[in-house]
């Protein structure tokens, strides 16, 4: 069965969400979307600048032609009230109940305001929105957001636009363990494909990127790199990584090693062969030898 991302009942075959800001040209944005193959693209809403003749139509046409699910945001909102009003305008403008909820609590590091987030999420869910809150990895905050009716959470890796990668790995992984059922998408602070791959290996459900792609030297190439990294990380998670061991274990079989007596001079003890408990003779079966790891070093 195909591995799918499910957000509010909508299914997606890819796990990357892409922001549309800070590209050098519309063409570059279009090409980056093609290369990243995102499940959703994020957009925003702003007043028309008096100097602008376009009013966002060309941008909107470009995004629509990309045929991706639209995720409007409430970027820049500093209170729950402001975020709710912005979400209502976004719903009418973009014709979707999906909303990436941002309530910023600190203008220096753009950290989410946990109190404003919960207040806004409660209100928006009552108004029929499908809320994807940009939050921190704080477990109690995440629980409150789930209690409010959020069916997806988007904890940060690091402050927006920093590219630092996951700053609090332990808390992020604990969050994943505490909330195994809800889709968790890492939003903000990712800088490298290895960061994206890492969080996907930890079992996060997706990654939302913008600056890491649009501010790369070659954004389209980076978009493709991120798409590959997210796929690799997801595949690794599904494959089930090995358990980290404290001691070295030879991967090449010890049995039949030539010059075995030399090991004593190096202080190496031979690994005792596995004794089959089912074997009446107490010897080693061929099956057990075949089951020894034989991958090349």
């Amino acid at each position: 069965m195909e591995d799918q991302l499910v957000l509010y009942g909508r299914t997606f075959t890819t796990r990357l969400l892409l922001g549309t800001a800070r590209y050098e040209s519309p063409r570059q944005l279009t090409d980056a979307i093609s290369a990243a193959d995102p499940a959703l693209v994020t957009v925003s809403l702003r007043r028309q600048l008096s100097s602008s003749k376009d009013s966002g139509q060309s941008f909107w046409n470009l995004v629509r032609e990309a045929r991706r699910t639209i995720l409007p945001n409430t970027a820049g909102c500093l209170s729950a009230r402001e975020a709710v009003k912005t979400a209502c305008m976004a719903r009418e403008l973009f014709q979707t109940n999906l909303i990436k909820l941002e309530v910023i609590g600190d203008e220096v590091n753009l950290q989410p305001d946990p109190f404003g987030l919960v207040e806004a999420a409660n209100e928006l869910v009552k108004l029929g929105f499908q809320v994807l809150p940009y939050c921190t990895e704080d477990w109690v905050l995440c629980r409150r957001l789930m209690d409010a009716g959020c069916e997806v959470l988007m904890p940060w890796a690091a402050p927006i636009g920093t590219g630092q990668g996951p700053r609090n790995a332990r808390a992020l992984r604990e969050l994943r363990q505490r909330a195994p059922q809800i889709p968790l998408i890492i939003d903000a602070g990712i800088g490298l494909p290895s960061h994206a791959c890492q969080v996907m290996e930890w079992g996060f459900d997706g990654v939302l990127l913008n600056t890491a792609v649009s501010r790369a030297t070659h954004p389209v190439r980076m978009a493709r790199a991120f798409a590959n990294a997210v796929r690799a990380g997801r595949s690794a998670f599904l494959a089930g990584p090995m358990i980290v061991q404290q001691a070295a274990t030879p991967s090449t079989p010890e049995i039949g090693r030539p010059f075995a007596s030399d090991s004593s001079r190096l202080g190496i003890k031979s690994v005792p062969p596995t004794i089959s408990t089912s074997s009446t003779g107490g010897g080693i079966s061929n099956e057990e030898i075949r089951n020894e790891p034989t991958e090349p070093n």
């Binding site: 922001g19 957009v43 007043r47 941008f59 909107w60 409007p72």
Partner: peptide
């Protein structure tokens, strides 16, 4: 305050009122 499209006719404007008109734009 957001004004839903279907209620524009009922929304009376007075001097000094503020109107904000927003359009799609790029966002992260």
């Amino acid at each position: 305050e957001f004004v839903p499209r279907g209620t524009y006719e009922m929304c009376c404007i007075s001097t000094g009122d503020r109107i904000d008109i927003v359009h799609p734009t790029a966002g992260g």
